[in-house]
């Protein structure tokens, strides 16, 4: 193993980069959220904000300019069409070492977390996972990265004082995406990646779509989740109905996933997904700490549960003590009525 000892020289490292994660050529919301927040940070640092986009020759850079980026760095290559750890890591490592950004922000998605963890070792820098808050220390001008730990029971602020770039993965939905009024000149910098055979050892054989996932949980503004209290697998139908009436996604507690009522793609909580929608409706979910860890970042929480002592009521903005099987259908009717 080669030793990676020397902290990267700091004064040469400038600007904020955001990884523009794309799936099937579509740039993900989290990238726009991070660009919007990067612009706030850039004001304190008086620096540029750039997006870095990897994809094939057909990749579209234009949407990024709607969020006020100063530059877009693009690496286009057929082998970068779909995310794979090794070619993405090698390409980004080359780009970082060439252009030397001071800060590099990446969405904390499955792709972002797979990538950032590998890249941080390759380019010898610190990495803070799954941040929910970013700020610049006004004196030292370094990035303060705040994140939950211990299942959300504790918050920690972390810095990388001597290594550059300062790298963090950031949770989707933490920051708002803000389009700018007047677009700047489209400054696109093309980078020609060299993809080596040793980076192409892993092959994607197949992608299995889960037909029950209609709306991506982590991107959803509204989530309706079902727990044991809905009593039966077939009652997930009413959870789906409420979610679709509200234009939201379907979530689930671990107990219902373990019971085989619904697929793991829906699971919210420590062993599932962390979500932060505008509205989270917990139906028949007791609210164990492991579940709360995955959803207490929601702006508004509605809890419906028979048990008045259920811990979910401790985090709920609005609580209804009652039977989901009565309340939820009534709520569906009411929502539909209001929409007419």
């Amino acid at each position: 193993m080669d030793l990676r000892k020397n902290p990267n020289e700091q004064p040469n490292w400038k600007g904020i980069w955001v990884f523009a994660e794309q799936r099937d050529g579509i740039i993900q919301s989290v990238a726009f959220e991070l660009l919007s927040e990067a612009k706030n940070l850039a004001r304190t640092l008086s620096c540029e904000v750039s997006a870095v986009l990897l994809g094939d020759e057909k990749i579209e850079v234009d949407p990024l300019f709607e969020y006020g980026v100063d530059k877009v760095y693009v690496a286009a290559h057929p082998e970068l069409k779909n995310y794979l750890t090794a070619p993405y890591t090698s390409t980004l490592a080359e780009m970082v070492n060439t252009y030397k950004p001071e800060i590099f922000l990446i969405g904390a998605t499955t792709i972002g977390r797979d990538l950032a963890a590998r890249l941080a070792i390759r380019i010898n820098c610190g990495l803070t996972a799954d941040c929910t808050g970013l700020a610049i220390d006004p004196e030292k001008k370094i990035l303060q990265q705040t994140r939950p730990a211990f299942g959300g029971n504790i918050m920690a602020t972390i810095i990388s004082p001597n290594h550059r770039p300062q790298m963090a993965t950031v949770r989707p939905k933490v920051f708002k995406k803000i389009k700018i009024q007047k677009q700047k000149e489209k400054n696109v910098i093309k980078f020609s990646p060299v993809i080596k055979g040793e980076d192409l050892l892993v092959k994607i054989l197949e992608t299995i779509k889960d037909e029950s996932v209609k709306v991506n949980l982590q991107e959803a503004e509204i989530i309706v989740s079902g727990g044991r209290g809905i009593c039966d697998q077939k009652n997930f139908k009413m959870i789906e109905d409420l979610a679709s009436a509200l234009g939201g996604a379907v979530g689930a507690s671990r107990a219902t996933v373990d019971a085989g009522w619904i697929s793991a793609h829906h699971q919210v909580g420590q062993t599932g997904k962390t979500v932060a929608p505008k509205l989270y409706i917990a139906c028949g979910i007791a609210g164990k700490i492991q579940h709360l860890a995955g959803m207490q970042g929601a702006e508004t929480i509605v809890a419906i549960n028979k048990d008045p002592d259920a811990p979910i009521f401790k985090v709920a903005t609005y609580g209804i003590v009652g039977d989901c099987l009565e309340i939820v259908p009534a709520l569906i009717r009411k929502v539909k009525e209001l929409r007419i």
Binding site: P7, L127, I154, T157, S160, G322
Partner: peptide, 28 residues
């Protein structure tokens, strides 16, 4: 280790909100 933990603190407490009471129609 490139990173340093500079601060730990308790997350802001959400605190129990409002319990809505009444008949099914009323609460909905």
């Amino acid at each position: 280790s490139p990173t340093r933990v500079v601060k730990i603190f308790a997350p802001p407490v959400k605190g129990g909100g409002e319990i809505i009471e009444g008949s099914t129609d009323e609460v909905v």
